[in-house]
Design a protein around this nucleic acid. Structure first.
Ligand SMILES: [Zn+2]
Ligand SMILES: [Zn+2]
Ligand SMILES: [Zn+2]
Ligand SMILES: [Zn+2]
Lengths: 130, 130
DNA sequence: CTTAAATATGTTATATTATTACACAGCGTT
DNA sequence: AACGCTGTGTAATAATATAACATATTTAAG
Protein backbone atom coordinates (compact mmCIF):
# COMPACT_ATOMS: atom_id res chain seq x y z
CA UNK A 1 0.00 0.00 0.00
CA UNK A 2 2.94 2.35 0.29
CA UNK A 3 3.50 2.84 -3.42
CA UNK A 4 -0.21 3.25 -4.12
CA UNK A 5 -0.14 6.75 -2.67
CA UNK A 6 2.38 7.98 -5.16
CA UNK A 7 0.38 7.04 -8.22
CA UNK A 8 -0.69 9.84 -10.50
CA UNK A 9 -4.27 10.62 -11.49
CA UNK A 10 -4.28 8.65 -14.73
CA UNK A 11 -2.41 5.77 -13.16
CA UNK A 12 -4.98 5.54 -10.36
CA UNK A 13 -7.93 5.63 -12.74
CA UNK A 14 -6.51 2.85 -14.84
CA UNK A 15 -5.35 0.71 -11.94
CA UNK A 16 -8.79 0.99 -10.34
CA UNK A 17 -10.42 -0.25 -13.50
CA UNK A 18 -8.05 -3.18 -13.89
CA UNK A 19 -8.38 -4.14 -10.24
CA UNK A 20 -12.15 -4.24 -10.54
CA UNK A 21 -11.87 -6.83 -13.28
CA UNK A 22 -10.77 -10.31 -12.36
CA UNK A 23 -9.84 -10.94 -15.95
CA UNK A 24 -7.26 -9.27 -18.20
CA UNK A 25 -8.26 -6.10 -19.98
CA UNK A 26 -6.95 -4.88 -23.31
CA UNK A 27 -5.54 -1.43 -23.75
CA UNK A 28 -8.19 -0.14 -26.11
CA UNK A 29 -10.99 -1.55 -24.02
CA UNK A 30 -9.49 0.29 -21.07
CA UNK A 31 -9.32 3.42 -23.20
CA UNK A 32 -12.99 3.07 -24.05
CA UNK A 33 -13.91 2.70 -20.38
CA UNK A 34 -11.89 5.65 -19.12
CA UNK A 35 -13.01 8.16 -21.74
CA UNK A 36 -15.72 9.28 -19.35
CA UNK A 37 -12.94 10.16 -16.91
CA UNK A 38 -11.17 12.39 -19.37
CA UNK A 39 -8.55 10.03 -20.71
CA UNK A 40 -8.84 10.42 -24.44
CA UNK A 41 -5.80 8.98 -26.15
CA UNK A 42 -4.12 5.57 -26.42
CA UNK A 43 -0.83 7.00 -25.27
CA UNK A 44 -2.30 8.11 -21.97
CA UNK A 45 -3.39 4.55 -21.38
CA UNK A 46 -0.13 2.97 -22.46
CA UNK A 47 1.90 5.34 -20.32
CA UNK A 48 -0.09 4.40 -17.25
CA UNK A 49 0.03 0.70 -18.12
CA UNK A 50 3.78 0.77 -18.57
CA UNK A 51 4.27 2.40 -15.22
CA UNK A 52 1.90 0.02 -13.45
CA UNK A 53 3.66 -2.96 -14.97
CA UNK A 54 7.00 -1.55 -13.92
CA UNK A 55 5.99 -1.21 -10.28
CA UNK A 56 4.29 -4.61 -10.26
CA UNK A 57 0.70 -3.48 -9.74
CA UNK A 58 -0.35 -5.18 -12.94
CA UNK A 59 1.12 -7.79 -15.27
CA UNK A 60 0.96 -8.09 -19.01
CA UNK A 61 -0.29 -11.38 -20.41
CA UNK A 62 2.05 -11.46 -23.37
CA UNK A 63 0.22 -14.05 -25.41
CA UNK A 64 -2.99 -12.04 -25.15
CA UNK A 65 -1.80 -8.44 -25.16
CA UNK A 66 -3.83 -7.85 -22.06
CA UNK A 67 -3.27 -6.61 -18.54
CA UNK A 68 -4.32 -8.12 -15.23
CA UNK A 69 -4.02 -6.83 -11.69
CA UNK A 70 -1.62 -8.53 -9.36
CA UNK A 71 -3.43 -9.71 -6.27
CA UNK A 72 -0.30 -10.64 -4.42
CA UNK A 73 0.24 -8.00 -1.74
CA UNK A 74 3.95 -8.71 -1.50
CA UNK A 75 4.41 -8.51 -5.22
CA UNK A 76 8.05 -7.86 -5.72
CA UNK A 77 7.38 -10.48 -8.31
CA UNK A 78 6.65 -8.25 -11.22
CA UNK A 79 9.76 -10.00 -12.42
CA UNK A 80 8.64 -13.55 -11.83
CA UNK A 81 5.21 -14.28 -13.20
CA UNK A 82 3.30 -17.48 -13.89
CA UNK A 83 -0.15 -17.67 -15.40
CA UNK A 84 -2.62 -20.32 -16.41
CA UNK A 85 -4.76 -19.54 -19.41
CA UNK A 86 -7.82 -21.44 -20.55
CA UNK A 87 -7.80 -21.61 -24.32
CA UNK A 88 -11.54 -22.04 -24.42
CA UNK A 89 -12.98 -19.38 -22.10
CA UNK A 90 -9.78 -17.31 -21.90
CA UNK A 91 -9.90 -17.31 -18.12
CA UNK A 92 -6.53 -16.24 -16.72
CA UNK A 93 -5.22 -16.94 -13.24
CA UNK A 94 -1.95 -15.91 -11.70
CA UNK A 95 -0.15 -18.84 -10.16
CA UNK A 96 1.94 -18.65 -7.02
CA UNK A 97 3.64 -21.98 -6.51
CA UNK A 98 6.52 -21.99 -4.15
CA UNK A 99 8.26 -25.05 -5.51
CA UNK A 100 7.92 -23.94 -9.12
CA UNK A 101 9.16 -20.46 -8.24
CA UNK A 102 12.21 -21.95 -6.61
CA UNK A 103 13.04 -24.01 -9.65
CA UNK A 104 12.65 -21.06 -11.95
CA UNK A 105 14.56 -18.72 -9.70
CA UNK A 106 17.43 -21.17 -9.46
CA UNK A 107 17.54 -22.06 -13.12
CA UNK A 108 20.94 -21.68 -14.75
CA UNK A 109 21.58 -22.21 -18.40
CA UNK A 110 24.95 -23.23 -19.78
CA UNK A 111 25.62 -19.89 -21.44
CA UNK A 112 26.46 -17.80 -18.42
CA UNK A 113 23.47 -15.59 -18.88
CA UNK A 114 22.30 -13.48 -15.94
CA UNK A 115 18.53 -13.53 -15.54
CA UNK A 116 16.53 -10.92 -13.72
CA UNK A 117 13.03 -11.79 -14.89
CA UNK A 118 10.87 -14.53 -16.30
CA UNK A 119 7.34 -15.04 -17.51
CA UNK A 120 5.65 -18.41 -17.79
CA UNK A 121 2.27 -19.05 -19.37
CA UNK A 122 0.48 -22.39 -19.12
CA UNK A 123 -2.28 -23.12 -21.64
CA UNK A 124 -5.05 -25.65 -21.40
CA UNK A 125 -8.64 -26.13 -20.42
CA UNK A 126 -10.07 -25.03 -17.13
CA UNK A 127 -12.42 -27.17 -15.06
CA UNK A 128 -15.51 -25.61 -16.60
CA UNK A 129 -14.30 -26.08 -20.16
CA UNK A 130 -12.98 -29.63 -20.01
CA UNK B 1 12.55 -34.22 -42.15
CA UNK B 2 9.36 -36.13 -42.81
CA UNK B 3 6.96 -33.22 -42.47
CA UNK B 4 9.15 -30.87 -44.47
CA UNK B 5 8.08 -32.57 -47.68
CA UNK B 6 4.45 -31.67 -47.19
CA UNK B 7 4.98 -27.94 -46.82
CA UNK B 8 3.41 -25.70 -49.42
CA UNK B 9 5.31 -23.24 -51.57
CA UNK B 10 4.78 -20.21 -49.36
CA UNK B 11 5.42 -22.19 -46.21
CA UNK B 12 8.75 -23.42 -47.61
CA UNK B 13 9.85 -19.96 -48.67
CA UNK B 14 9.13 -18.53 -45.26
CA UNK B 15 10.57 -21.42 -43.29
CA UNK B 16 13.78 -21.23 -45.34
CA UNK B 17 14.14 -17.58 -44.51
CA UNK B 18 13.56 -18.08 -40.80
CA UNK B 19 15.91 -21.04 -40.64
CA UNK B 20 18.68 -19.01 -42.23
CA UNK B 21 18.44 -16.50 -39.40
CA UNK B 22 19.66 -17.52 -35.99
CA UNK B 23 17.61 -14.75 -34.48
CA UNK B 24 13.85 -14.14 -34.42
CA UNK B 25 12.31 -12.39 -37.41
CA UNK B 26 9.24 -10.18 -37.38
CA UNK B 27 6.34 -10.78 -39.71
CA UNK B 28 6.68 -7.57 -41.67
CA UNK B 29 10.42 -7.96 -42.04
CA UNK B 30 9.74 -11.43 -43.43
CA UNK B 31 7.17 -9.91 -45.75
CA UNK B 32 9.74 -7.41 -47.00
CA UNK B 33 12.26 -10.17 -47.64
CA UNK B 34 9.93 -12.50 -49.51
CA UNK B 35 8.40 -9.90 -51.81
CA UNK B 36 11.01 -10.82 -54.40
CA UNK B 37 9.61 -14.35 -54.28
CA UNK B 38 6.10 -13.23 -55.09
CA UNK B 39 4.61 -13.06 -51.62
CA UNK B 40 2.94 -9.69 -51.50
CA UNK B 41 0.54 -9.47 -48.60
CA UNK B 42 0.76 -9.72 -44.80
CA UNK B 43 -1.89 -12.39 -44.72
CA UNK B 44 0.20 -14.70 -46.88
CA UNK B 45 2.99 -14.40 -44.35
CA UNK B 46 0.78 -14.83 -41.31
CA UNK B 47 -0.90 -17.87 -42.78
CA UNK B 48 2.42 -19.56 -43.33
CA UNK B 49 3.68 -18.52 -39.91
CA UNK B 50 0.60 -19.89 -38.19
CA UNK B 51 1.00 -23.21 -39.92
CA UNK B 52 4.71 -23.44 -39.18
CA UNK B 53 4.08 -22.66 -35.53
CA UNK B 54 1.36 -25.29 -35.43
CA UNK B 55 3.63 -28.03 -36.72
CA UNK B 56 6.51 -26.94 -34.52
CA UNK B 57 8.95 -25.81 -37.20
CA UNK B 58 9.09 -22.35 -35.69
CA UNK B 59 8.13 -20.77 -32.40
CA UNK B 60 6.68 -17.38 -31.63
CA UNK B 61 8.53 -15.26 -29.09
CA UNK B 62 5.45 -13.74 -27.53
CA UNK B 63 7.13 -10.86 -25.77
CA UNK B 64 8.74 -9.78 -29.03
CA UNK B 65 6.15 -10.65 -31.65
CA UNK B 66 8.83 -12.48 -33.55
CA UNK B 67 9.42 -15.93 -34.93
CA UNK B 68 12.42 -18.21 -34.57
CA UNK B 69 13.21 -21.58 -36.11
CA UNK B 70 13.24 -24.60 -33.85
CA UNK B 71 16.58 -26.35 -34.11
CA UNK B 72 15.49 -29.35 -32.15
CA UNK B 73 15.09 -32.21 -34.61
CA UNK B 74 12.72 -34.09 -32.34
CA UNK B 75 10.55 -31.07 -31.81
CA UNK B 76 7.27 -32.40 -30.61
CA UNK B 77 7.82 -29.56 -28.22
CA UNK B 78 5.96 -26.89 -30.10
CA UNK B 79 3.88 -27.12 -26.99
CA UNK B 80 6.63 -26.78 -24.45
CA UNK B 81 8.97 -23.92 -25.16
CA UNK B 82 11.61 -22.14 -23.10
CA UNK B 83 13.63 -19.17 -24.27
CA UNK B 84 16.30 -16.90 -22.90
CA UNK B 85 16.20 -13.32 -24.10
CA UNK B 86 18.90 -10.72 -23.65
CA UNK B 87 17.25 -7.39 -22.92
CA UNK B 88 20.25 -5.51 -24.22
CA UNK B 89 21.15 -7.12 -27.55
CA UNK B 90 17.84 -8.97 -27.95
CA UNK B 91 19.64 -12.25 -28.58
CA UNK B 92 17.22 -15.14 -28.21
CA UNK B 93 18.13 -18.75 -27.52
CA UNK B 94 15.85 -21.75 -27.17
CA UNK B 95 16.55 -23.68 -24.01
CA UNK B 96 16.27 -27.43 -23.69
CA UNK B 97 16.76 -28.37 -20.08
CA UNK B 98 15.64 -31.81 -19.13
CA UNK B 99 15.13 -31.14 -15.46
CA UNK B 100 13.24 -27.91 -16.05
CA UNK B 101 11.08 -29.58 -18.69
CA UNK B 102 10.20 -32.29 -16.24
CA UNK B 103 9.14 -29.82 -13.60
CA UNK B 104 7.04 -27.88 -16.03
CA UNK B 105 5.50 -30.97 -17.57
CA UNK B 106 4.56 -32.29 -14.15
CA UNK B 107 3.24 -29.04 -12.78
CA UNK B 108 -0.25 -29.22 -11.31
CA UNK B 109 -2.12 -26.24 -10.01
CA UNK B 110 -4.83 -26.52 -7.40
CA UNK B 111 -7.65 -25.66 -9.78
CA UNK B 112 -7.90 -28.89 -11.67
CA UNK B 113 -6.86 -27.31 -14.90
CA UNK B 114 -5.62 -29.55 -17.70
CA UNK B 115 -2.55 -28.13 -19.43
CA UNK B 116 -1.43 -29.04 -22.89
CA UNK B 117 1.10 -26.32 -23.55
CA UNK B 118 3.39 -23.82 -21.92
CA UNK B 119 5.76 -21.06 -22.88
CA UNK B 120 8.50 -19.72 -20.64
CA UNK B 121 10.64 -16.68 -21.36
CA UNK B 122 13.68 -15.77 -19.27
CA UNK B 123 14.97 -12.20 -19.50
CA UNK B 124 18.36 -10.88 -18.56
CA UNK B 125 21.76 -10.01 -19.91
CA UNK B 126 23.84 -12.36 -22.00
CA UNK B 127 27.55 -12.87 -21.48
CA UNK B 128 28.47 -10.22 -24.01
CA UNK B 129 26.17 -7.61 -22.54
CA UNK B 130 26.88 -8.03 -18.84
C1' DC C 1 -12.81 -41.03 -62.37
C1' DT C 2 -15.92 -38.06 -60.02
C1' DT C 3 -17.19 -35.64 -56.26
C1' DA C 4 -16.64 -33.51 -51.92
C1' DA C 5 -13.79 -31.92 -48.18
C1' DA C 6 -9.75 -29.89 -46.70
C1' DT C 7 -5.94 -27.00 -47.44
C1' DA C 8 -3.70 -23.31 -49.72
C1' DT C 9 -3.54 -19.05 -52.54
C1' DG C 10 -4.18 -14.08 -53.95
C1' DT C 11 -6.07 -9.62 -53.10
C1' DT C 12 -8.29 -5.74 -50.86
C1' DA C 13 -9.62 -3.69 -47.00
C1' DT C 14 -9.69 -3.10 -42.19
C1' DA C 15 -8.94 -3.99 -37.25
C1' DT C 16 -5.94 -3.97 -33.38
C1' DT C 17 -1.91 -2.83 -30.81
C1' DA C 18 1.66 0.45 -29.81
C1' DT C 19 4.93 4.41 -30.45
C1' DT C 20 6.98 9.05 -32.13
C1' DA C 21 7.04 13.78 -31.77
C1' DC C 22 6.00 18.04 -29.74
C1' DA C 23 4.38 21.40 -26.18
C1' DC C 24 3.85 22.18 -21.63
C1' DA C 25 2.85 21.63 -16.27
C1' DG C 26 4.28 20.43 -11.51
C1' DC C 27 7.69 19.37 -8.20
C1' DG C 28 11.89 18.91 -5.70
C1' DT C 29 16.94 20.01 -5.80
C1' DT C 30 20.77 22.97 -6.26
C1' DA D 1 16.42 30.96 -11.16
C1' DA D 2 17.77 26.88 -13.46
C1' DC D 3 17.65 22.07 -13.88
C1' DG D 4 16.13 17.27 -13.89
C1' DC D 5 12.48 14.31 -13.44
C1' DT D 6 7.90 12.74 -13.98
C1' DG D 7 3.54 13.34 -15.71
C1' DT D 8 -0.11 15.31 -18.98
C1' DG D 9 -2.50 16.34 -23.51
C1' DT D 10 -2.87 15.98 -28.42
C1' DA D 11 -2.09 14.66 -33.17
C1' DA D 12 -0.13 11.75 -36.19
C1' DT D 13 1.66 7.46 -37.51
C1' DA D 14 3.89 2.89 -37.10
C1' DA D 15 3.62 -1.93 -36.33
C1' DT D 16 1.06 -6.08 -35.76
C1' DA D 17 -2.73 -8.96 -37.18
C1' DT D 18 -7.29 -10.43 -39.09
C1' DA D 19 -11.86 -10.38 -41.95
C1' DA D 20 -14.03 -11.21 -46.16
C1' DC D 21 -14.24 -12.90 -50.67
C1' DA D 22 -12.96 -15.42 -54.83
C1' DT D 23 -10.36 -19.11 -56.62
C1' DA D 24 -7.09 -23.04 -56.97
C1' DT D 25 -4.94 -27.31 -55.56
C1' DT D 26 -4.53 -31.53 -53.06
C1' DT D 27 -6.56 -35.47 -50.68
C1' DA D 28 -9.79 -39.01 -49.61
C1' DA D 29 -14.06 -41.32 -50.43
C1' DG D 30 -17.56 -43.23 -53.11
ZN1 LIG E 1 1.63 -10.83 -9.45
ZN1 LIG F 1 -12.28 -22.30 -19.51
ZN1 LIG G 1 11.78 -25.83 -30.36
ZN1 LIG H 1 23.16 -9.47 -25.05
Amino acid sequence: MQKQETLSKNQKIILDLIEKSDQPLKAYSILFDVKKKGINAPLQVYRALNKLVKIGKIHKIESRNAFIACKNSKCQIAKATVFSICESCEDVTEIHDHKLSEHLRDFKDNKGMKYNKYNLEFFGLCKKCI
